[in-house]
Design a protein around this nucleic acid. Structure first.
Length: 406
RNA sequence: GGUGGGGUGACCGAGUGGCUAAUGGUAGCAGACUGUAAAUCUGCCGGGCUUACGCCCUACGUAGGUUCGAAUCCUACCCCCACCA
């Protein structure tokens, strides 16, 4: 079957499972590298494959601007376009409602964006976002949502949450229309196990694979709003996965943890939970401990380009003078291409001379670091040692900066 | 030898009497980054003291001088560049 989730073990709220998608399976918990423009910045599909990543993201808004979804569709869909044959997920552009706040206006029907590329006005509605994602052809499409900042007042958080629910209905309707219109059978989750992939295959160049739509829980930092959001989503189900959005957007970490704990008991056990935009290594473990199965975050590659690498003990500035002349590997415990082939001193040199290889190598390490963290957590959940391992891991890991030399 | 131009903090380079420990830039150092408007952004960057406001020292080729006050004006010298002999 194209969309299924097998829960294999739990450790408290933490879960280990396997997500089956049209383009392959994803053992969970898992980190998904972000490839906004159809590229995990700086890395080839082969590079990303070697990090062990099983699924990556693309972005509706950015791919709509460049090269345009029709081009991607005519080139055979996002998988063929990018050379990444494993599962993919596209974000809906909802995050850009938040991140491009200065360049957009929201109304009930949708969002007008002033393109950051050429200034032209682009309209994104739930229908358009769904249509674009259908053309892009990822395994999973995300609902178009209204993300508000972490410090948003209740009224705004409520407005965003309610609107996201209304938009969800429109996304789903459009998604079913697209699936039905071209195949005669719905591609959405509810029927995933009742019709064969071949029967559902949309007749289009990017085809062969049906696509599932996932809803997104909003509600800011307000527990009751979060629960209402979840309730509304479940009433519009069933779904093959559920995302938690609007976190890590400026709110304190304990608040994010509290929201996750609030939601966890109400989340259906039988589908994967995806915490959008998270996160840093410690955030992954905290999320996993609170029942999250999937994560994505740009920090691995952005920090990689900016010369910050994650280590078991905390982050390290690769540009720093401390690494000058060091023959040590970046992270002796890591099995990535970078850590097994070059020294800290050489990596620092690459940043000093501003060669792109430095950015690529540290990005590879950071992505591998998070992917491996997911793999390790999974193994610990399966063998029953997750809790202790997680506590010890967090104890050893200092989020900000490596302790200074004595 | 003559004439003209010039010597500013690690480097390049502004500044022609007080608002100058001295604009900018580079290099150096440190930090930030969470569904990517990001190979980006921020801070520090002569030395010492102070929790801080701040204080002291040294500094614009060298040495003198003028002035209440000089990187800025004057004199001599040293060095660099261009052109002419």
């Amino acid at each position: 079957m194209s969309f299924s989730f097998q829960l294999e073990a739990t450790a408290g709220a933490a879960r280990a499972g396997t997500l089956a998608l049209p383009h392959g399976t994803v053992p969970t918990p898992a980190f998904m590298p972000v490839g906004t423009h159809g590229v995990v910045r700086g890395l080839s599909a082969a590079d990303v494959r070697r990090t062990g990543a099983r699924i990556i993201l693309g972005n509706t808004y950015h791919l709509h601007l460049r090269p345009g979804e029709s081009i991607v569709r005519d080139m055979g869909g996002l998988h063929r376009f990018t050379g990444w044959e494993r599962p993919m997920l596209t974000d809906s552009g909802g995050f850009q409602v938040f991140s491009l706040e200065q360049l957009r206006t929201i109304s009930e029907s949708g969002v007008e964006f002033r393109s950051h590329v050429d200034g032209t006005w682009r309209r994104l509605t739930p229908e358009r976002a769904t249509e674009i994602q259908w053309d892009l052809g990822a395994d999973i499409a995300m609902a178009f949502d209204h993300v508000v900042p972490g410090g948003a007042p209740r009224e705004l958080a409520e407005e965003g949450m309610e609107r996201t629910l209304r938009w969800l209905s429109r996304c789903r309707e459009e998604h079913e229309r697209l699936a039905h219109g071209r195949t005669g059978a719905p591609a959405h989750s509810g029927d995933a196990s009742t019709s064969s992939p071949t029967a559902r295959a949309p007749v289009r160049p990017s085809a062969g694979a049906p696509q599932s739509l996932w809803p997104i829980i909003q509600g800011g930092t307000y527990d009751d709003l979060r629960l209402r959001s979840l309730e509304g989503i479940l009433a519009r189900g069933p779904w093959t996965g559920i995302a938690i959005g609007g976190l890590s957007v400026g709110e304190p970490k304990p608040v994010m943890h509290r929201v996750l704990e609030t939601l966890e008991p109400g989340l259906p056990r039988e589908v994967p939970r995806y915490l959008m935009g998270v996160g840093f290594p410690a955030d992954l473990l905290e999320g996993i401990a609170r029942g999250v199965d999937l994560f994505d975050c740009v920090a691995a590659t952005r920090n990689g380009r900016h010369g910050t690498a994650w280590l078991p003990t905390g982050r390290i500035n690769v540009r720093g003078a401390a690494l000058k002349g060091s023959t040590e590997p970046l992270d002796p415990e890591c099995d990535c291409e970078t850590c097994t082939s070059v020294s800290r001193g050489y990596l620092r040199h690459l940043f000093v001379v501003e060669d792109m290889l430095g950015m690529r190598l540290v990005s590879i390490h950071n992505v591998r670091f998070l992917v491996r963290l997911g793999e390790q957590a999974r193994a610990r959940i399966l063998d029953g040692t997750f809790d202790r391992w997680r506590r010890e891991w967090l104890e050893r890991h200092r989020p900000s900066a490596v302790p200074a030399e004595p």
